[in-house]
Write a protein that binds this DNA or RNA. Structure first.
Lengths: 218, 218
DNA sequence: TTGACAATTCAACAGTTGTTGAATTTTACT
DNA sequence: AGTAAAATTCAACAACTGTTGAATTGTCAA
């Protein structure tokens, strides 16, 4: 029962609560999950969630925050590397790759928890109740850096258009993260929601072409 | 208290329940809304929802179904018209327009209920629990016709790619319908979630360019 | 007016919810 | 070994949930 140096408040059961909450919140949303369901899945007493995290709302936020910083870090690193390679102004597709590839990498990583977390982010981003506040506080600071890079890569473009294009990108990504299984049904098994490789390989050029059309670059 | 000829089971309070359910379900999701909240907003007794619709789940489905047929109808008409103008094989952008413009038109219509309904569809489409089954049953039959038209407009393209491109289109549309207000914040007021005109004017060429890039047409 | 039937409300149920304070166990340090 | 603190469980609460059957009101044709 040794805590990792990084987190002094580490506890196995505490972590299991977060894992269970991640999975359940991602699938059923905030109101679709009870603390007892979470406790049962984590094989823990109900009261323990309150002891560690306080109110249900705080547990939800803690679940969201646990991996948010990691995601922001790998994304920032990808953006910085793209800017280094591009001498300060990387080409459009490199910026979009730096935005999407880190997510793909995390989903393909050994930790299966990232799949649930991605679905959780999709839920939050689609929700008018949670999305506006939480995404803004914890993701928009970095997203603003991507927007700035896009403005540099697409000069002479009204900022308004760049924001709308990012909005479409965000939508395509969000539905991909949600993994609702609808594309599987609609394509009659031809495509799979879980096929991250194809999903991101095609999303990047798709979105890049959209940006170029709207923002009038070659 | 005269029922419109079209619906023999019409009742003002019944309709008010649907209106209230539409607004609340769209914003807070299925589990985030109680029957008492709906009844209160509709200024009606709780038991009346059960009398008219049965279980809560049935009320949810009835709310979804009320406008689904209308949406499918106007969309089908738009697709047929595009096919007529294009001599059976309308160009790519005409198909995408036939898919998106009807929604824009409904949102700009006099009935403000369509705004709530669009957010409800966004919620359902983003949900792994509801999306797979309900969207498949009630929307995919028509969507398959759009897919077929896309295949005709983009011959020599692997169907897999067309399905993924439609998936990105669906994602961009879904986030637009959700109207979470995030683009307002991120753009610092430069763009508004409620600005359907710009949202769809830009979405159509954005998506068309994406299709062309992936499916290799001029 | 009466009588039927639909629409609506009233009252109440059994089960579940988030949350809390006290009791118990485990951990870590001397 | 002993002890204080942290971690965990136990037991219970008041409030709220969806749902139902009986009672009341409204509607409209005979």
């Amino acid at each position: 029962m040794k805590p990792p140096v990084s987190d002094p408040s580490f506890t196995p059961k505490r972590e299991r609560i977060l894992d269970a909450a991640e999975e359940l919140f991602a699938r059923h949303g905030y109101d679709g999950v009870t603390l007892r369901q979470i406790a049962k899945k984590a094989d823990v007493d109900v009261a323990l969630a309150n002891y560690h995290f306080g109110k249900k709302r705080d547990l939800f936020e803690a679940t969201f925050l646990r991996r948010a910083q990691i995601l922001n870090d790998v994304r920032l690193q990808a953006l910085l590397e793209a800017e280094k390679e591009g001498d300060g102004t990387p080409p459009l597709e490199a910026i979009i790759s730096a935005f999407l590839r880190p997510i793909q990498a995390l989903k393909l990583s050994s930790d299966p928890g990232w799949r649930n977390y991605c679905a959780l982010v999709a839920y939050i981003n689609s929700s008018a109740v949670w999305g506006e506040e939480m995404m803004h506080r914890h993701f928009d600071p970095l997203v603003s850096r991507y927007i700035a890079a896009l403005k540099k890569a697409l000069p002479n473009t009204e900022p308004e258009k760049i924001h709308w294009c990012y909005h479409y990108l965000s939508g395509a990504l969000t539905l991909t993260l949600a993994q609702t299984g609808r594309i599987d049904r609609l394509s009659e098994g031809l495509c799979q929601s879980t096929d991250s490789q194809t999903a991101y390989d095609l999303m990047i050029p798709f979105v890049a072409a959209g940006f170029e059309r709207i923002c009038g670059e070659p």
